[in-house]
Design a protein around this nucleic acid. Sequence first.
DNA 1: CTTGACGACGTACGTTGTACGTCTCAATAT
DNA 2: ATATTGAGACGTACAACGTACGTCGTCAAG
Lengths: 220, 220
Amino acid sequence: MSSAEQRAPLNRDAVVNAGIRLADSHGVDALTMRNLADGLGFKVMALYNHVANKQQLLGLMLDVVAEEIDDPPDDMAPLAAIRSLAISMRTTLTEHPWVPDLWLQHMPGPARTANMERLLRLFDESGLSPVLAHHGFHAVTNHVIGYTIQDVGMTAMATSADPDDPMALAYEFLANTPAEVYPHTVAHLHQHLNEDVPSSYELVLDFILDGLVRLNTSTT
Amino acid sequence: MSSAEQRAPLNRDAVVNAGIRLADSHGVDALTMRNLADGLGFKVMALYNHVANKQQLLGLMLDVVAEEIDDPPDDMAPLAAIRSLAISMRTTLTEHPWVPDLWLQHMPGPARTANMERLLRLFDESGLSPVLAHHGFHAVTNHVIGYTIQDVGMTAMATSADPDDPMALAYEFLANTPAEVYPHTVAHLHQHLNEDVPSSYELVLDFILDGLVRLNTSTT
DNA sequence: CTTGACGACGTACGTTGTACGTCTCAATAT
DNA sequence: ATATTGAGACGTACAACGTACGTCGTCAAG
């Protein structure tokens, strides 16, 4: 009986994937080494045979997520492909709300480096001047991360304040900020609560891309 | 002797300001309650007579930083004032590298709410349509936070890897990413290390503002 | 002179990451 | 067949953290 119950030994991929699932489902705060080990049916110290420490584990998790980002088709025009890639990145990052924060605090692994390479190559092929291509890379990267981090951070705050009713936080904020003192802020928040405004993600992305092209053609 | 050494009692402002100084000088990781108490010449639990918990302390610290943001002059044209405010925000946030991350994870206090109000009012007075003003607010906020968080995160990573030589991290990264596989990434990094490219912060900010104005006039 | 409030602090607890050493077992070498 | 080795799971233990609780001294109001 005892020999029949041999589990398969742990391995790095299993640990990393379990980490991603745990962070996705219960938030990054629930990702403790003990918790993770429990979920896998092992004890804490078993994990350390497969990852050096938590920091490394997080880095590996990030790189797995980076692999999930869809590539634009090869035959797409560079600027359209940039646009498409930016949207894919946002999609993937939004599916793993714990990622955007950590993204900026870890060195890129192979998959994320490949992702940067792709975006940089597209800019190189876009016809923009080298300096504008350089700035474009940063502008788009910043746009993707910034917008996503903000979205995700907001909803994380709301659900951590009251998991049952994410709206509760907004109403509590409204109760504490008088409309006579902060009329525009209150109005803005109401726009979010009542009418639902579409995301300006793609709109602003296009402002950036159009701005790059426009400046490029006007100085060439 | 003992009665002559009476210290002034602690108060909330002292705690909050000491927290800011500590986070500024030694990083947010060094901001532990014990550390903070030590710096003030008190013991840990004394702090809890003045702040409810660490979370609240961080929130108070953030709002003090929000107060530091310079307002644009009242007579400045709305769009110019928005631009000016965005630059002031970046300046202040950069002076407190621990802020951008936390900024998105805490509800705004009074000062930050006032800051939002200001930006929203400027957009309201800008002549943009209400929906574009709404999007403009998010676009600019995102730009400010995103760009700053990225700057600050990078340098934080570099200095935490090797406080003596922040460049070391870049060279280590280069050593691990072959130029044959990642030519554009390597070239991009070299642009940062050799030529020093000016920040694209204002350039992209203008892309956004110009994009808003252009779209507004073309659909009005 | 008493009383009551307030602020500082000692003690203690639960939670976290992880260093270190031990034990088991299968694969390999003799 | 026996001895050796190495990998992997795990128990124990520790330091650092946030913070709950209770105690004590001091000072102002009754």
